[in-house]
Computed example of a mutant assay.
Amino acid sequence: MRYFIWILRLAVFVVVLLFALKNTDRVTVRFFVDTLTTDIPLIVVMLACFVAGTLFGLLLTVPASLRRRRELAALRRDLERARAEAVVVPAAATTAPPSSDVVLPMHPL
């Protein structure tokens, strides 16, 4: 599965690179109201948009990643607490066997 993901990433990169190399014309870029930049190669604009989109996508995954880390830490604490209780319980559960006059059921009916 890991190799498949890397092959998919490589394929996307190659497709974007080939698309960018075919579009090397000079363009005029207008930012917001009065900012104007002229004669920028389209490949640079496309690369900047690709990088900005990738960074934005990664930033969107940060909250979920932090939430998973907090949940993992809580589960590890619960596991350690359960292990500590499991060590203590058998020592406390050692009681005397029932006396001979106690009738124990043979079946759980």
Score class of each variant (00 low, 15 high):
24 T>W: 04
3 Y>M: 07
20 A>P: 00
88 V>Y: 08
52 A>S: 11
17 L>Y: 06
85 E>W: 12
28 T>N: 06
59 L>E: 06
91 A>N: 15
108 P>C: 01
103 V>W: 15
1 M>K: 05
69 R>M: 05
94 T>R: 14
57 G>M: 10
24 T>E: 11
19 F>L: 08
49 C>T: 10
101 D>W: 09
82 A>R: 13
84 A>E: 13
97 P>R: 12
29 V>D: 10
6 W>N: 01
60 L>V: 06
19 F>I: 04
68 R>C: 06
90 P>I: 03
84 A>Y: 09
71 E>Q: 13
75 L>N: 15
15 V>M: 13
81 R>D: 05
82 A>Q: 08
84 A>L: 10
73 A>F: 02
43 I>K: 14
28 T>A: 01
55 L>H: 02
72 L>H: 11
8 L>I: 00
107 H>W: 05
16 V>C: 12
27 V>L: 02
29 V>L: 12
72 L>M: 09
41 P>R: 10
103 V>M: 13
70 R>G: 02
93 A>Y: 07
16 V>I: 07
6 W>E: 00
57 G>P: 04
7 I>M: 07
18 L>T: 09
90 P>M: 05
45 V>P: 09
5 I>Q: 02
63 P>M: 04
38 T>G: 01
58 L>A: 13
2 R>M: 06
4 F>S: 03
58 L>Q: 12
33 V>R: 15
22 K>D: 03
49 C>K: 15
12 V>R: 04
54 T>S: 07
99 S>C: 02
61 T>Y: 02
35 T>H: 13
40 I>Q: 12
47 L>P: 03
63 P>I: 01
36 L>M: 10
96 A>W: 13
33 V>F: 09
22 K>S: 08
72 L>R: 14
40 I>M: 08
89 V>C: 06
13 F>K: 07
4 F>I: 02
29 V>G: 04
67 R>P: 00
19 F>V: 06
86 A>L: 09
22 K>L: 08
31 F>G: 11
60 L>S: 02
14 V>F: 06
5 I>E: 01
106 M>R: 15
67 R>V: 00
54 T>G: 07
89 V>A: 10
89 V>F: 11
21 L>K: 15
61 T>D: 08
44 V>M: 11
24 T>K: 14
2 R>Q: 04
88 V>W: 09
17 L>I: 06
48 A>N: 15
96 A>P: 05
105 P>G: 04
72 L>Y: 09
61 T>P: 05
82 A>H: 05
51 V>Y: 11
29 V>E: 14
29 V>A: 08
21 L>V: 07
21 L>T: 12
46 M>V: 00
101 D>I: 04
27 V>M: 04
43 I>M: 14
9 R>V: 00
89 V>P: 00
95 T>F: 11
67 R>F: 01
103 V>N: 14
50 F>Y: 12
5 I>G: 00
33 V>Q: 15
69 R>I: 03
102 V>S: 05
2 R>H: 07
30 R>T: 05
64 A>D: 03
39 D>S: 07
26 R>C: 02
37 T>C: 11
82 A>L: 10
89 V>N: 11
34 D>C: 03
3 Y>S: 07
21 L>Y: 08
56 F>L: 14
51 V>S: 11
34 D>E: 15
37 T>A: 10
80 E>R: 09
48 A>T: 13
38 T>C: 04
11 A>N: 04
91 A>S: 13
58 L>E: 12
78 D>I: 05
71 E>F: 00
100 S>H: 06
